[in-house]
Computed example of a mutant assay.
Amino acid sequence: MKAITFQGVKNVEVKNVEDPKIVKDDDIIVKVTSTTICGSDLHLIRGRMPKMPKGFIIGHEAMGIVEEIGKEVNKVKKGDRVVVPFPIACGHCWYCNHDLWSQCDNSNEHGEVGGVFGYSELFGGYDGGQAEYLRVPYANIGPRIIPEELTDEQALFLTDILPTSYWGVENGGVKSGDTVVVLGCGPVGLLAQKWAAYMGASRIIAVDNIDYRIAHAQTFNKVEALNFKDYDNTGEYIKEITQGGADVVIDCVGMDGEMSAMEKVETALKLQGGSKSAIEIASQAVRKGGTVSVVGVYGSRYNNFPFGDFFSRNITLKMGQCPAHTYIDRILNLLKENKFDATDIITHRMSLADGKKAYELFDQKLDNCIKVVLKP
């Protein structure tokens, strides 16, 4: 089969690789009909994630048709169209039983975090979904059957960015009347802005530095969009225009924020896991007693993290990998009822064979690229 593979920093290639096989009795093989590139995939190709062997198949957002099932699979059958949530979860450990699916104790023998498709040996070493076929373990737990009335494009983002953005807003405790700041106008940030409006926020302020993404954010009702390059101190400016700060700040950027010269050096030397500019803005933009919800991916430890700023102002910090299984069904119901739509963020539709070009567009923010859907 063909698959997008990691070949080194800033280098992905579409290669012919071995087809996946049933390994355990509760596995399925999915013939992928749609897949996509996630912003967190860029951490891999930028060399910020350890244990990425050459030839590793990337991708954790995929859906398709069940092609083959193990003999213990009873929740799906051959021919079903399914989405596959990005965390791999066993369904019976303490963490799965407490809705912390992304922290499953049994899906990753290589580390303390749960398994994730296509996200390095550190996250279990599972082949990813940017391929023609995908092996899905624990198939009685993760995959969800998609009704025929929904297109692939309507359902595909249930794999990650729809649950992640929803969870980021819910985790921040957004309620009716709140002022919410969303850092980042990439796919997750744009959807978080929509969810904040859905949950009743009265004021939504989006922050980015890419003009076309800011313009897209401004097409949403209630969203004010700021380019942080226009301000000497964006966090302090937000505090000023909100008379004390936002009730909730949602960081959808993580370590991919704008890096200072020192951070670039420290990151290159592996002394730091990337930028902390977003979390610094968050520390200034949130009101006393407010909440910062972090869904953007951060790497290793960070120098000069603004811990004291949070402590002294009674800020609640919430963060982590979204337990996507918890949210898929409720969001799926909203999609079926036409109460939420995420397809407007799709800017490019390309063949899997053009995966290298798709990564270039997304990584370098060319041709106004926000989200690419790939068809094997």
Rank of each mutant, 00 (worst) to 15 (best):
I146G: 05
P147D: 15
E148D: 15
E149P: 02
E149F: 10
E149C: 03
L150N: 09
L150P: 07
D152W: 00
D152Y: 02
D152K: 04
E153G: 03
E153T: 04
E153Y: 01
Q154R: 13
Q154P: 10
L156G: 05
F157A: 04
T159W: 01
T159A: 15
T159L: 04
T159Q: 13
D160C: 11
L162Q: 06
L162H: 00
P163W: 03
P163H: 02
T164L: 00
T164I: 10
S165D: 06
S165C: 00
S165L: 00
Y166S: 00
Y166M: 08
Y166P: 03
W167D: 02
G168Y: 02
G168L: 00
V169Q: 08
V169F: 00
E170V: 14
N171Y: 04
N171K: 12
G172D: 10
G172S: 09
G173L: 03
G173K: 01
G173Y: 01
V174G: 05
S176V: 14
G177P: 09
D178M: 14
D178W: 07
T179M: 10
T179H: 09
V180E: 05
V181C: 07
V182D: 07
V182C: 04
V182K: 04
G184T: 06
G184C: 12
G186K: 07
G186Q: 04
P187E: 10
L190S: 13
L191K: 13
A192G: 02
A192H: 03
Q193Y: 03
K194A: 14
A197M: 11
A197F: 11
A197I: 14
Y198I: 10
M199K: 15
M199H: 13
M199W: 00
G200Y: 01
S202C: 01
R203K: 15
R203P: 00
I204G: 04
I204S: 02
I205N: 12
A206Q: 08
V207I: 13
I210P: 05
I210L: 12
D211R: 14
D211F: 08
D211M: 12
D211C: 01
Y212N: 02
Y212M: 10
Y212H: 09
R213L: 10
I214R: 03
A215H: 11
A215E: 15
A217W: 07
A217Y: 12
A217M: 11
Q218T: 11
T219P: 02
T219H: 14
F220K: 12
N221T: 14
N221Q: 15
K222M: 11
V223N: 05
V223L: 06
V223W: 04
E224S: 08
A225H: 05
L226K: 10
N227L: 08
N227K: 14
F228E: 09
F228L: 13
F228S: 07
K229Y: 05
K229P: 00
D230I: 01
Y231K: 05
D232F: 07
D232W: 03
D232N: 11
N233P: 02
G235L: 04
G235A: 04
E236W: 05
E236K: 15
E236I: 13
E236N: 13
Y237V: 09
Y237P: 13
K239F: 09
K239E: 14
K239M: 04
K239A: 14
K239T: 13
E240R: 14
E240L: 13
I241S: 09
T242K: 08
T242Y: 09
Q243Y: 14
Q243H: 15
G245M: 09
G245L: 08
